[in-house]
């Protein structure tokens, strides 16, 4: 399998320092505002989970929809590259890039909330896994949607539904169907890791 798409994605990331800087600073400012604003820990955890999920979903979905719209993906596929290679390489590169861009925010959370070593590692690993899932969700909705606007709408709705099913917005009754369901939603574990890091 040729790594052309992986290579192109990383070259693009290197060539766009301004976009990278914004992608680092915007979540960092949001995290700092919540963390330094002394928001209650459960509320802060909810905001961080939503922020990181949307970061991954939109970060993968919108560029993919844009590249489909302008014919870039079609051009790549006409070279004979395997469609799965395009999706997988793009997914892996996008999720890893998101993680690098969010690392300052995660470190900020670890420092400000004084998370211990175990919670810190769990936070980084949990968010990394969550970003892979969120990126996959973004690519999925972008491949279903027919425009950028539709992608944004579908990404928001599907991410919110999954966050709801993950038990991010409310605590389900013990033994209920909702409690059973949340165990199957990956964002549940991301939220748990974030709650542990912020002491919620």
């Amino acid at each position: 399998m040729t790594a052309a798409v992986w290579w192109l994605e990383w070259r693009q990331a290197i060539r766009r320092p301004r976009v990278n800087l914004f992608s680092v600073l915007v979540p960092l400012f949001l995290v700092a505002a919540v963390a330094l604003g002394r928001a209650p820990a459960p509320h802060a955890a909810l905001v961080y989970t939503m922020l990181f999920t949307f970061f991954g979903t939109f970060g993968a979905g919108i560029p993919w929809a844009r590249d489909v719209e302008r014919g870039w993906i079609h051009r790549l596929l006409l070279t004979g590259i395997h469609p799965a290679a395009v999706v997988l390489q793009r997914w892996a590169a996008s999720a890893l890039l998101d993680l690098f861009q969010l690392l300052p925010s995660l470190l900020f959370i670890i420092v400000v909330y004084g998370a211990d070593g175990g919670a810190a590692v769990r936070l980084i690993v949990g968010v990394a896994a969550g970003l892979f899932v969120a990126n996959a969700l973004g690519l999925l909705v972008a491949s279903i949607a027919r425009s950028l606007a539709e992608t944004a709408l579908l990404a928001s709705v599907s991410a919110l539904l999954l966050l709801h099913a993950a038990g991010v917005f409310r605590t389900p009754l013990p033994g209920s169907f909702a409690e059973s369901l949340q165990r199957f939603v990956p964002f549940h574990y991301v939220h748990d890791a974030i709650r542990a890091a912020v002491g919620a």
């Binding site: 790594a3 052309a4 192109l8 070279t79 004979g80 590259i81």
Partner: peptide, 8 residues
């Protein structure tokens, strides 16, 4: 080069 690599 990206295209060359994508083309195999």
């Amino acid at each position: 080069l990206g295209f060359a690599m994508a083309a195999g």
